[in-house]
Design a protein around this nucleic acid. Structure first.
Length: 601
DNA sequence: CAAGGTTGCGCG
DNA sequence: AAAGCGCGCAACCTTG
């Protein structure tokens, strides 16, 4: 097992031939980019370059395939979305990578790294990822850059070999200077695996039954209206609302106008949100809530959404690994993280294939129990529903109360039911509560917290510190003090939640990374059997991940492998728990469903 | 009229 | 209007 750093190496031609292949921006697509050849360097275990070779862009996928079957190296590259899609499109997967861009972001903020100066100075690595938009087209690199600086692209990390080697060297030094290099190395590996998985998810796509989606829209909204027109069902419901309000011209789509219409009708609300409307008795409320529901469905996931995001039976959202400060993934386009449950029936396996859907029950509180070593909390959830276990321990009296208490503990709830119930949890699970309470205290003082593996929270903004400093000055008013206290508590709630949400994200990455390798080992179906051709050459004949959302995954698999996939999903959850928390007596039970659709019939 | 802010609601 | 964290997106509305 070695490492290989590939990077754009040699300028072999003039500008102008760039980007003939619109499918991928960046070096991996370089089959169409005649300006560059690729330099690939083998690295020794200590990171020193051993052997360099030049690879023609058109031969890159083949080169990767050769090394994968020979010695399965860890690829050290600038940014997975820039290198990997081209290989995948040629049917070539990689086993492991070190994503310099993602790892830079972790290391330069990591509190446990003693010397971060060199990383912080390498600001070019703070850039966003290359756009993974399929239709973004070639970038005008040559037009914007002097020939003395030909290797950078606007808004992207560097892709040339020298820059990659230099950055890798900085990262190795930073890791070595860490107080806990083992954990941090684990995090970097998990984060990088996530980078590969995000590319793979996009390549495979979510199998999406657009006809089913369309039927669902029609049954809710009525037939698809002409462009710019509202669906007939919405118009009818809107009329019901206006009649009930006694206001034939009331606007329902503009919150300010709706608010005044409601108040004119004698409904004393301060906003038009669902939660407040629900509290009032008036014949207009019920149809109005129904209208809002329909309106949301139409604007967020209506026919326009299908047209934009679903093609050839695949929904391809854009994932952003590490896009959230806590380490959770974000998304930019397609709304993968907000797919309404209502639409799940449209998530449907290809013929001859099925879906294995799995989610973790109460991931975050279990992670809290594990990282705090709270044996009572671990026991409450062991081999059972955690909330019911808390009730059985006699800490609270109903499952709902247990849930409110636990969420309040992790989010910093102080009022209402939460404020009443959290103290009971503090008595029952002192270790767990001590961990989150301390995290909150640190935040209130303007400090930073780290997750289990060492991802560090961002420090408060300068304005925050000024607010705090100003509040203790002689001339400060009581309003200044109150504002400062409120901001301090707010930041405390952020750091309180950061450690739990962030560590849960690490567990989920470890789960995914392990699962990805197990799926690769399950094997393929023979050529000619039902193939998922729309999933692309790398996945058309083998089980593959198609969806990930914080604590749940969906695998698209040939029917014959469904049981093996379900077993792999389970095994990976166990492995993730062991990898992060060793022998801690905490389990991570899954709800697993094997079905054609990702929802119970 | 484009950019940026606010509101409301979808997800965990 | 959420109470109590983290997000993205569409629509409306204000600002320049």
């Amino acid at each position: 097992m070695g490492r290989i750093a590939p990077g754009r190496a040699v300028d072999v031609g003039g500008p102008g031939a760039a980007g003939a292949d619109p499918g991928a921006a960046g070096p991996a697509s370089a089959s169409g980019d005649r300006r560059w050849r690729i330099g690939a360097v083998d690295l020794a275990a200590d990171g020193t370059p051993i052997a360099e070779q030049v690879v023609e862009p058109a031969g890159f996928a083949e080169f990767v395939a050769g090394r994968e079957s020979a010695d399965r190296p860890r690829w050290v590259w600038s940014d997975s979305p820039s290198w990997y899609p081209g290989a995948l499109a040629a049917g070539v997967r990689v086993e492991r990578a070190h994503d310099l861009r993602l790892c830079h972001a972790i290391l330069r903020g990591a509190r446990s790294v003693r010397d971060r100066d060199a990383l912080a100075a390498a600001v070019e690595w703070d850039a966003a990822s290359a756009a993974s938009e399929p239709d973004s087209g070639p970038e005008p690199v040559a037009a914007l850059f002097d020939l003395d600086e030909p290797l950078a692209s606007p808004g992207e990390v560097p892709h040339d070999l020298d820059a990659a080697l230099a950055e890798f060297s900085r990262q190795r030094a930073a890791l070595a200077s860490s107080e806990d290099p083992g954990r941090l190395a684990l995090l970097l590996a998990a984060e990088s695996a996530g980078g590969l998985i995000a590319v793979e998810l996009r390549a495979a796509g979510v199998p999406w039954d657009a006809d089913e989606h369309d039927r669902l829209l029609e049954s809710e909204l009525g037939p698809r209206p002409a462009i710019g027109a509202k669906p007939e069902r919405m118009l009818r419901v809107a009329d019901e609302v206006r009649t009930a309000l006694g206001d034939a011209r009331a606007s329902l789509d503009s919150p300010p106008k709706l608010l005044s219409a409601l108040r004119r009708a004698g409904i004393d609300v301060r906003s038009t949100s669902h939660w407040e409307l629900e509290e009032h008795e008036h014949p207009a409320i019920e149809p109005l809530l129904r209208y809002k529901k329909l309106s949301r469905l139409l604007s967020a996931n209506g026919w326009a959404w299908i047209d934009e995001w679903v093609r050839d039976g695949r929904y391809r959202p854009v994932y952003v690994p590490g896009g959230v400060v806590t380490g959770r993934w974000a998304s930019s386009g397609g709304g993968a993280l907000q797919l309404p449950r209502q639409l799940r029936p449209a998530l449907r396996a290809d013929p001859g294939w099925t879906l294995v859907s799995a989610d973790v029950a109460q991931l975050e509180p279990r992670v809290l129990a594990a990282m705090s070593g709270d044996r009572a909390m671990a026991a409450a959830g062991f081999e059972k529903d955690l909330y019911s276990g808390i009730v059985e321990s006699g800490i609270v009296s109903t499952r709902q109360d247990a849930k409110i208490a636990v969420l309040g503990a992790m989010y910093g709830g102080t009022s209402g039911d939460s404020g009443r119930l959290v103290p009971r949890l503090r008595r029952g699970f002192p270790s767990a509560m001590r961990l989150v309470d301390r995290a909150a205290e640190v935040g209130e003082r303007g400090g930073v917290m780290a997750t289990w593996l060492g991802r560090t929270s961002p420090p408060p903004a300068p304005e925050w510190a000024e607010l705090q400093a100003g509040a203790s000055l002689p001339g400060a008013t009581s309003r200044d003090e109150e504002r400062a206290r409120r901001a301090a508590r707010e930041f405390g709630r952020f750091t309180r939640n950061f450690v739990v949400q962030g560590t849960a994200a690490e567990w989920a990455l470890a789960w995914l990374a392990d699962l990805r390798l197990r799926l690769a080992a399950i094997g393929t179906v023979e050529s000619g059997a039902a193939e998922a051709t729309a999933s692309g050459p790398a996945f058309a004949r083998r089980p593959h991940l198609v969806f990930f959302l914080h604590d749940e995954v969906i695998v698209h698999t040939p029917v014959v492998h469904a049981e093996a996939v379900a077993a792999a999903v389970e095994a990976s959850a166990v492995a993730a728990g062991r990898l992060l928390f060793g022998a801690a007596p905490v389990d991570f039970p899954l709800d697993i469903l094997i079905a054609q659709r990702a929802v119970k019939e």
